[in-house]
Nucleic acid binder design. Structure first.
Lengths: 232, 232
DNA sequence: TGTACATCAGTGAACGCGCGTTCACTGATGTAC
DNA sequence: TGTACATCAGTGAACGCGCGTTCACTGATGTAC
């Protein structure tokens, strides 16, 4: 080939486009994303972007995958930075979940909020990205169960038979090396944190309870205490 | 006046417009709402809608207020239909919260999901609509506390000092006839349910735990048990 | 050392589309006199 | 009983705008010979 593509430069421009897209998204919402607006901000022709993304939908997919990866990075970093046992690491990871959402509200809306009209995420590329973050959570719950930090105790010592059957089927089907109880408690913790984060993000919490960080930490500690151990 | 406006007819047309808007919203998302698209669906000129709404933003505001009202209606109906004590009524209301969201996913996204790009909700009209639903929840928690069905018990017997201060300030400022503890527990229950509902709405729950209704009911019972009483 | 040329990043015009809102209007209708 | 007219619902053309995507192109650049 007579003129090889400068991969480093190409990648850098691609990153600049995504960065600008993220900025636009912050200003105009996830549904306000547009190729022309991004190009305008970059002082470029709209058509120039087609060198980097075959279509707007592909650009959105890249944004989504990046967001899931960044969230997973944050969760892994929190886990590895915490020196304590699995219970303390679990606490750190759930705190990091909220922290990331608050620091990156638009990215959080992109991956966990309303779908973008006319856009359909290709599952084969987004699902692995979701799983990576969830694995951090489940892994720590499993470790806490193994170490005896989490002990079966009401009301979380049992789960509905139907729920257990679904989890068992998933674990068997995908070959995940975790117990059904760990996966169940991970979902319990995730959904609990998720609810607070979303209410905070759209300002439904603050008028009542003040600082959401305090409220979130209190709920997290209450939940972990119910799981069988006092918070670290 | 020579030609009085037929108020019933006018109101009926207004309702038809809102109904069509809701249908469009279901198909194309909350951000896909458009005056022209609604008019097209109604076989009318876009300008005809200006007889009923001064602008698209006013139409969206009407949709939001209606959605909050419908949700509050559903919660009140669930409370009044349940024959048991405050604890049973509380459980019924929280089940109704999820049921309404699942039955009206787009309306739920409209009021609790991503904001619509370029639209700003007028707080003086939306805030009272939000409050009406929340009052149902807080009222029942307060009644349960009064009746002794909810008793102070770890981990929900206390709350952070900062949270208590914020809630006290709100209660004093607005003159709500409830205790801080009741308002706190209402927020705890709301955010817990909210998280499950949103994960279910965007299909993050189903691949793991199967039927969200079962999971939701189990979490609800676990929470109410922690509040101090066995579920009805 | 010089040159042909494949490939690169990016341009500029154009396509067909949908959008919210304005304006001047049309025809129907019910009331006041 | 008849008529003028204010108000109604709705029309149709037009405004200026932004959108994603196509197409043929320009000029630079680095390699192969």
């Amino acid at each position: 080939m007579a003129r090889p593509r400068n991969d480093a430069l190409h990648e850098a421009t691609r990153a600049r486009i995504l960065e600008t897209a993220r900025k636009q998204m912050t200003l105009y919402g996830t549904a306000g994303l547009g190729l022309r607006a991004i190009a305008r901000e970059l002082d470029q022709t709209p058509t120039a972007l087609y060198r980097y993304f075959p279509s707007l939908d592909d650009l959105i997919t890249a944004l989504i995958v990046d967001a899931f990866s960044a969230l997973a990075d944050a969760l892994e970093a929190a886990r590895d930075a915490e020196a304590g046992g699995p219970m303390e690491k679990l606490r750190a990871v759930l705190l990091a979940y909220r922290a990331w959402a608050v620091a990156n509200p638009t990215d959080f809306q992109l991956i966990y909020g309303n779908p973008i009209p006319g856009y359909d995420a290709p599952r084969e590329v987004t699902v692995p990205a979701v799983v990576r973050g969830f694995v951090v959570l489940v892994g720590l719950v499993e470790a806490a169960v193994q170490s005896g930090a989490i002990v079966p105790r009401p009301p979380y010592d049992a789960m509905p038979a139907e729920t257990l059957a679904a989890i068992d089927a998933l674990i068997a089907g995908e070959g995940y090396p975790v117990s059904a109880q760990a996966m169940y408690l991970a979902m319990v913790a995730w959904s609990a944190g998720h609810g607070i984060v979303l209410l905070e993000l759209f300002h439904h919490l603050q008028p009542v309870i003040g600082d959401p960080a305090v409220f979130y930490a209190a709920q997290l500690d209450a939940l972990l205490r119910s799981f069988g151990a006092a918070p670290g």
